[in-house]
Design a protein around this nucleic acid. Structure first.
Lengths: 155, 155
DNA sequence: CACAATCTCTACTATGTCAATAGATATTAA
DNA sequence: TTAATATCTATTGACATAGTAGAGATTGTG
């Protein structure tokens, strides 16, 4: 049920780009992102390149090159990102909308597990589709100015 | 974000045991489960053995041997099963309650992604902890008697 | 023009996980 | 005794994961 490290890095990197987003065509260097988020630089290259092919980011080459979001942060949902990096959001493919695959159970249409998993899927999708990079950036900015003790969620 | 095939097989097998559950000490043969659910028999052996070590099922050896639930179906939640087979229910370990692990982000307590993922985790856990094998068995019985066209959820 | 900093592309690798498969053994009922 | 079952340990092939490495292309600056 877990996100891969790759997926986590993608989200963290895009959050940085969302926070630095400006309407002009300014870019952020890979190295900056890598440092800020503790992500191996060479690995991050691959991931950003991958996100480029998904038309989520765009790049500028050369000495003052770097990456930027290809669309405004309000228009990029976590669902889109995770789906591109990881595949289905659903816990089993037989309840996935975007990546449906038949499963091996004897009668899919009468599978009780499937109906439960569909509920789980819906909950996941609801959160992931309603959260944009803009939400993430805003939340990140707020948390930054919060005193350390006042964080309102626990492990 | 996906359940492994192993986890799916575990749920399907346990659903069979839940449906056949009786208060006496009657058992179900691996082969029956394997046939009914299209699960490779040898693989299923391993899985059931694993569930035995988790004290979810118990076994009887010998010629009329087999497996049965170790507790009543109402007392076994999907969360317990999946946690034992797969590990954390949470999409990232840094928001897992049972399998917490520190993540590599610069400041975990102020990570915006973390606070979103916590919400996803809570949704998943809510469904998985409130659903028992008894619920699953009951739902399965109902679906079985439903005419094919009337299934009320879609892909 | 030269150069250095950046992105780009391809390939490689070590490790681990997944989904089985196999074989030998122990247990039990008839 | 035998046949059907569970148990245990090991192995395998395929694939994914999380990187690492090297060479090349692009571009702004001096």
């Amino acid at each position: 049920m877990k996100l891969s490290v790759r997926g986590e890095y993608a989200l963290r990197a895009l959050m940085v780009l969302a926070r630095d987003f400006q309407e002009d065509d300014s870019v952020v260097r890979i190295q900056q992102i890598s440092k800020k988020q503790n992500i191996p630089k060479r690995f991050l290259e691959q991931i950003l390149n991958d996100l480029k092919s998904a038309r989520i980011v765009e790049s500028k080459r050369g000495v003052s090159g770097g990456y930027r979001l290809r669309r405004r942060p309000e228009q990029i949902t976590l669902a889109e990102i995770v789906r591109h990096i990881e595949g289905p959001l659903a816990p089993v493919s037989c309840v996935s909308e975007k990546y449906y695959e038949k499963c091996s159970c004897p009668d899919e249409s009468r599978c009780a597990i499937r109906s439960i998993m569909k509920q789980v899927r819906d909950d996941i999708v609801k959160v992931m589709e309603s959260t944009t990079l803009a939400n993430l950036a805003e939340r990140s900015r707020k948390l930054e100015h919060e005193p350390a003790g006042h964080i309102d969620f626990v492990i």
